[in-house]
């Protein structure tokens, strides 16, 4: 629509927006995280929701205890192989649209504990991750920055068209297979549909 017409209508008190913008505006300003802290990063996540750094001004005050009521899973801390099936199960239980923030070096790639037999080298081996926050632990300000990045990502999601968001596309999966406890390792070690090791040219 012509910008001049838009500003004329605005002066009269009539606002013209696309359905996408309204839909995304409502969703991005009230993202409810799942109360799910694994390790040290969880303490910084709690500190980010406390009085000094205050995550609730972004709409994320209510940390839901149940995954059925949450939009966002902040994987804060090291994901071990013993815990990985539970993380994937919780992700599957969340209703669409859902997002994942991998907080801290451990959730991104195993972090300082990379050489551990029980450490999963990154939660993005099994579930798709939207925002990665580096740090060990990342400061609460970094978590707020990640929140704002996620909000911008949600604002840019489309409702119609070939590149529409995942939850509008019936062919995209919203639940991912849960790994099983094997005798020496998890079975399968990674989900090839979600994660392939990036090719590094040396």
């Amino acid at each position: 629509m012509d910008d001049g017409l838009k500003s004329e209508l605005t002066k009269q008190g009539i606002y013209v927006v696309k359905l996408e913008q309204l839909y995304n505006w409502g969703r991005s300003n009230s993202v409810w995280p799942l109360g799910f802290g694994l390790a040290c990063c969880a303490i910084e996540m709690i500190a980010a929701s406390m009085a000094r750094f205050d995550l609730s001004r972004f709409g994320a005050e209510v940390f839901r205890p149940s995954p059925r009521q949450a939009d966002l899973m902040i994987v804060a801390g090291t994901v071990t192989k013993k815990m990985a099936p539970q993380v994937v199960r919780l992700y599957n239980q969340m209703p669409e649209p859902k997002y994942v923030i991998a907080m801290g070096a451990c959730a991104i790639s195993g972090g300082p504990f990379k050489q551990g037999y029980n450490v999963l080298k990154g939660i993005d081996r099994y579930i798709p991750v939207d925002v990665h926050i580096p740090g060990c632990p990342p400061r609460p300000e970094a978590l707020i920055h990640a929140f704002m990045t996620l909000q911008r990502k949600i604002d840019a999601q489309k409702v119609f068209g070939p590149d529409r968001a995942r939850h509008f596309d019936a062919s995209q999966p919203s639940e991912f297979p849960i790994p099983l406890y094997g005798e020496h390792d998890l079975v399968p070690a990674k989900n090839p549909n979600v994660w392939e090791p990036p090719v590094v040219v040396r």
Binding site: L38, A39, T80, M83, G116
Partner: peptide, 28 residues
């Protein structure tokens, strides 16, 4: 055991000083 991060095994492969940052993450 859901947070068993193999600190003791990693320490056997790291120098004495190299284990100091890992001790921070014990009782975080």
């Amino acid at each position: 055991g859901y947070l068993h991060r193999n600190h003791e095994k990693i320490a056997e492969n790291t120098s004495y000083l190299g284990s100091m940052p890992y001790t921070d993450r014990l009782d975080y």
